[in-house]
């Protein structure tokens, strides 16, 4: 049953790639696409639909892909220069004037303006969609300074904020659309590195609702972002060893889907979380908060163990710092031994 599901998902994956090629705007790399590609593409589409949409960036529009919006709507795009506090403050002023505001920069640099975001955007519940690209150690060779591993944690602490990290480009497109229709602030975490496509064109994404990619009865892996693909591979390896492991994609880390988290914990009694982020404050913490109150059970967190990484390729770093499919698999096995 699970094997058949996997075969089906591989088939669907091929059709997603085909779908993306037809759309023509997304760059394909060995069957993988970066989630940031969805940002520029969908921002343009949202901009076409609603003249009230404006976008701002802090001199990284070619990297974040907001330049696609800039090209089509130069009068509605503002390059704020290398000035993140003013980026967020200006975004807030535009939102207070009734605009739907998208503000993008690298995940790490958005953190520089954290207190501005707290005091002007979160406190006033303004309709600003912050997008941080190049998140996680998967960002790679730029090294520690560029690898945001605390962004989920800090944005999660802000009242009124939604925090979303898509697992692939298809999901990123859906997330963009649904966030644009949500009246309130949000943080969207996107990646520079191309990642596997896990969903197809028929995917029904729902903000705030967990995405069950694979069912299982021995353990569940709650994963987010690039670690969703790693976790699917881990589950496949475990299947070969006779273990039935569910993989649930938590794209909306806040508000978290309490019902699905409790349901899968209850069903499997063994919970592993997986994220390219510090295990303190990220998805692992969010899941632990839910289960601590609703269904305490055995749990293990895969992620950055309160340390920084270094330069290298994303793949090399995942192997060295414990974020690869192999590590997720080992975490499940260790948990099942207990």
């Amino acid at each position: 049953m699970v094997g058949a599901q996997f075969a089906l998902s591989m088939l669907l994956k091929k059709s997603y790639i085909k779908f993306i090629n037809m759309a023509g705007t997304v760059v394909k790399q060995e069957g993988k696409v970066a989630t940031r590609e969805a940002y520029g593409k969908v921002l343009v589409e949202i901009g076409r639909k609603n003249p009230n949409v404006v976008a701002l960036d802090a001199d990284l529009s070619d990297s974040t892909k907001s330049e696609m919006f800039q090209k089509e709507f130069p009068e509605r795009f503002f390059n704020m220069g290398i000035a993140e506090q003013n980026l967020m403050g200006t975004a807030a002023g535009l939102a207070a004037s009734g605009k739907i505001v998208f503000a993008s920069t690298f995940a790490i640099f958005s953190e520089r303006a954290f207190e501005v975001v707290r005091n002007v955007i979160s406190r006033n519940k303004l309709n600003v969609k912050i997008t941080g690209t190049h998140a996680g150690i998967i960002t790679g060779s730029d090294g520690k300074s560029a690898q945001a591993i605390e962004d989920i944690s800090i944005y999660r602490t802000l009242p009124n904020f939604y925090v979303v990290q898509p697992a692939d480009v298809i999901e990123a497109e859906h997330a963009m659309w649904q966030l644009s229709e949500h009246n309130g602030p949000s943080y969207l975490r996107l990646l520079r590195e191309p990642t596997a496509i896990l969903h197809d064109a028929g995917y029904r994404f729902q903000l705030g609702k967990a995405d069950v990619l694979r069912d299982g009865k021995d353990a569940v892996i709650f994963a987010t972002g690039a670690l969703v693909a790693e976790s699917l591979n881990a589950a496949e390896m475990l299947q070969a060893e006779g273990r039935s492991v569910a993989v649930v994609n938590i794209h909306t880390i806040k508000p978290i889907d309490v019902n699905s988290v409790v349901e899968f914990a209850r069903k499997t009694k063994h919970v592993v979380t997986a994220e390219d982020h510090n295990i303190i404050g990220g998805l692992g913490s969010a899941i632990a908060e839910v289960l601590g109150e609703h269904y305490p059970c055995k749990m293990k967190r895969v992620g950055m163990h309160d340390r920084y990484a270094e330069s290298g390729s994303g793949e090399e770093l995942y192997k060295k710092y414990g974020l690869s499919a192999e590590h997720v698999k080992d975490a499940v096995k260790e948990l099942l031994k207990k």
Binding site: Q85, G89, A92, G93, L94, A95, A96
Partner: peptide, 17 residues
């Protein structure tokens, strides 16, 4: 309440105008 931020906010208000 947090100094400096009103200046940035005003840029947004003026751009919207």
């Amino acid at each position: 309440g947090s100094l400096g931020q009103g200046m940035a906010f005003s840029i947004g208000l003026a751009l919207a105008g």
